[in-house]
Amino acid sequence: MDVFECTKCGAALTAPVARVPLPPEAHGGYGHDAMPPLMEPGTYAVDPLPSGFPYRLWADVEKADAEAQGVFAPVRSVSFGPAGRILIAPGDTRGTVLIPEHSGDSCLGMCAGEKPNMACAACGSLVASREDDCGMWQAVWMEPDAVRRVPTGRPAPAPVFIPLPPESPGGGWSDRWSGAAGAALAHLLAASGGDRVELPGGYAELMFARVVEALLPSDGPARRVGVAGPGVPADGNLDIALVPAGAPDAAGGALPVPLPDGVWACLALPGETSPLPATGVLPGGVLRDDYPVPDRPGWLFAIDYRVFFRTLSRLPEVRQPWLRALYDELRSTHPWWW
């Protein structure tokens, strides 16, 4: 567990938090509704790539400069902000004050602007930006040069893989699943090498089947995709393994495709079973009603293409001619998503 302190005065700015992988949907935007907190209480994540202000349009950036910022294919704009910004839940902040006039071009809440909109209450140093505008996850992004990580000496809790249902409470598909599928699809295409892939059934088919059938060959040699991770040893015959984002080594000799823990758990772990022992079969005409299966949304599952393009543009593999051609083709057919 760690606490983040103000670099200038040493005041504590967070509760004790444990590091987890960066959620793939962290930079996504979702409609005009109020969004929940992105991070679970007591956790933090680090974005290893540059993010935030200042931005420069792609046309104004040299290729070498873009690649130095971790961008390897055309995007609308390239961030020249700091790498290593720290993401926490708003409820885990301590000893800070909001500066509303530093909010960016927001609508119904606050968002990051050119200056951080949160300051250390002890010394006034600008340390972080709060985001809670409509369509934005509620989150606090701490500036890496304004805070420092201080270990508490307490061990972080062991990861618990709790399945995250693909349906949202409101009856649609989960934004977290759509974001996870967008990021994982980018890694899956890069790992495929342009070959056909054989997907496992179940949720993996729900997430990827329609898209890979449209983007990858339907015949020829295939790369076998499976699930691996804690408690699920990698099959030695796998070419590509769907693994928890925090356990890439679980892929064994296969190429890893990371998934958030809750999404991975739905693919890897057995479903819910009855808490009572049962024998035999139900009588004819009797239907079980103790564990009703929720109705699925009445439309097809769709990946989050914003997350897909953001992830793929930041994978060095996108420089391969076949994948760059595919990226450019998709940009032309999805101009509003990248």
Score class of each variant (00 low, 15 high):
V3T: 06
F4D: 00
E5D: 11
E5N: 00
C6P: 00
L13P: 14
V17D: 13
R19V: 10
P21A: 15
P23W: 00
G29C: 10
H32K: 10
D33S: 05
P37I: 00
M39R: 02
P41K: 00
G42Q: 09
G42Y: 07
T43F: 01
L49F: 13
P50A: 06
S51R: 13
G52R: 12
P54F: 13
R56F: 12
K63F: 10
E67I: 00
F80I: 14
G81W: 14
G84L: 15
L87D: 08
R94C: 03
T96C: 06
G104T: 08
G104M: 03
D105M: 06
C107Q: 02
N117D: 14
G124N: 05
G124Y: 05
V127T: 02
S129P: 04
E131Q: 11
E131G: 08
C134P: 01
C134R: 01
G135A: 11
D145S: 10
V147T: 08
R148Y: 09
T152R: 12
A156V: 01
I162M: 01
P163K: 13
E167M: 14
G171E: 15
H187C: 13
A190G: 07
A190P: 15
A191I: 11
G193T: 13
D195V: 04
G202K: 05
E205D: 06
M207K: 04
F208N: 01
A209D: 12
R210Y: 12
V211A: 07
L215S: 13
P217E: 07
S218H: 05
P221S: 09
R223W: 10
A228E: 14
A228T: 11
G229T: 08
V232D: 06
D235K: 02
A245F: 03
P248E: 06
G253W: 08
P256R: 15
L259N: 01
L259S: 02
D261M: 00
W264N: 11
W264F: 15
W264M: 15
W264S: 09
C266A: 14
P275S: 03
L276P: 02
T279A: 03
G280E: 13
V281R: 15
V281F: 10
V281C: 06
V286M: 15
D289G: 06
P294I: 04
W299H: 07
I303W: 10
F308C: 02
F308N: 05
E317T: 09
Q320L: 13
P321T: 12
A325F: 08
D328W: 09
R331Q: 09
S332W: 04
